[in-house]
């Protein structure tokens, strides 16, 4: 089951984001896009051409980017505030806290090219702290979709949902993992593969790698459960408790520092409910060396083989 074809088509999830946004904007005149000179990197050229007045470009000014989003929401608009995830969250974190979350404005924050998508541009452009930063702020949902289908579904959900939400999108190509008709549910993990020996929990571009790791484990006679946990906050406690109880070992994989992100969120639930062995894979608390996103993920033990090895190691320790 779940055999991966040799050359799967890879999707840039930004395309699913903008296609969905444009389709919704055609129906809903309140939808506006706000960006920080990021029309190209946010793939908003099509939106700008179709709805020129509804593309608000504040220039390279992230504090104003988020503040303006909050003001637009106050005026009754439905703003999708788009910028490179590293700058959107890092530069404007206090605006996210005060103007969006604490003020409870209906702002949709879209962090583009998240994680290490900017690869060789280096750690200044990596967004590997954003789960931790935004997750620590009350009243903001945090979501990292795993493929084109989940991206489109999450963007559609964000428009329907009343309240602040941070969508963390990558530009690194991923194959389609979910069925075309998938509906996004906030705070609900999706079981992509069932198993009882170990659970691999991932999101964003790591879910695809987790599935490849599960294939490798299956070849060695190990049945891994794979949970796509797009929502980091609110976290799916039930799925985590069940995984801890039924598999006794959990590997988390994320394109984020291991401090404060998905792995930490899972561990918080595990230690307070059903203690189980865990391994958190991610950026190990260093500024990454030069390399592409995929190179760096491999480097940090998140190649399919690396993930499988981490899972096997946990299973050994269980015994």
């Amino acid at each position: 089951m779940n055999a991966v074809t040799k050359e799967p088509k890879l999707y840039d999830c930004r395309d699913a984001f903008t296609a969905t946004l444009e389709a919704m904007a055609a129906e809903n005149g309140d939808i506006v896009a706000v960006c920080n000179d990021s029309v190209g990197s946010s793939k908003l050229a099509g939106f700008r051409d179709r709805f020129p007045e509804r593309l608000i470009n504040v220039g390279i000014a992230e504090q104003t980017l988020v503040g303006v989003g909050a003001g637009l929401a106050n005026g009754g608009k439905l703003p999708f505030v788009c910028g490179a995830a590293c700058f959107l969250t890092g530069r404007a974190l206090e605006q996210i806290k005060a103007d969006v979350a604490y003020s409870d404005t209906n702002v949709k924050l879209v962090g583009i090219s998240s994680g290490m998508a900017y690869g060789e541009l280096g750690p200044t452009h990596h967004s590997t702290e954003d789960f931790a930063w935004v997750r620590a702020i009350p009243n903001v949902a945090v979501v990292a979709p795993c493929d084109n289908v989940e991206t489109a579904a999450a963007v559609a959900f964000a428009a329907e949902y009343t309240g602040p939400i941070f969508l963390r999108l990558s530009r690194v190509g991923v194959p389609q993992l979910l069925p075309d008709d998938h509906r996004f549910e906030l705070g609900k993990a999706v079981t992509l593969r069932d198993g009882t020996d170990v659970t691999i929990i991932a999101n964003g571009v790591l879910t695809h790698r987790a599935m490849l790791a599960a294939d490798k484990l299956a070849a060695a006679g190990i049945e891994a459960r794979v949970l796509n946990m797009a929502t980091v906050r609110p976290i799916d406690e039930d799925a985590i408790v069940k995984a801890a109880e039924e598999t006794g070992a959990i590997v988390t994989c994320e394109e984020h520092t291991i401090f404060g992100g998905l792995g930490s969120a899972v561990a918080e639930v595990v230690v307070e409910t059903r203690p189980a062995l865990m391994k958190r894979l991610g950026v190990p608390g260093i500024f990454p060396p030069t390399g592409s996103a995929n190179f760096l993920l491999d480097e940090f033990g998140m190649s399919p083989d690396g993930i499988a090895a981490a899972a096997s190691d946990l299973i050994e320790r269980k015994a």
Partner: peptide
Amino acid sequence: GHGLPVAVGMAISAKLS
């Protein structure tokens, strides 16, 4: 330093409407 950016968004919203 938060109020003015938010006010700019409000004013843009009124213009759009």
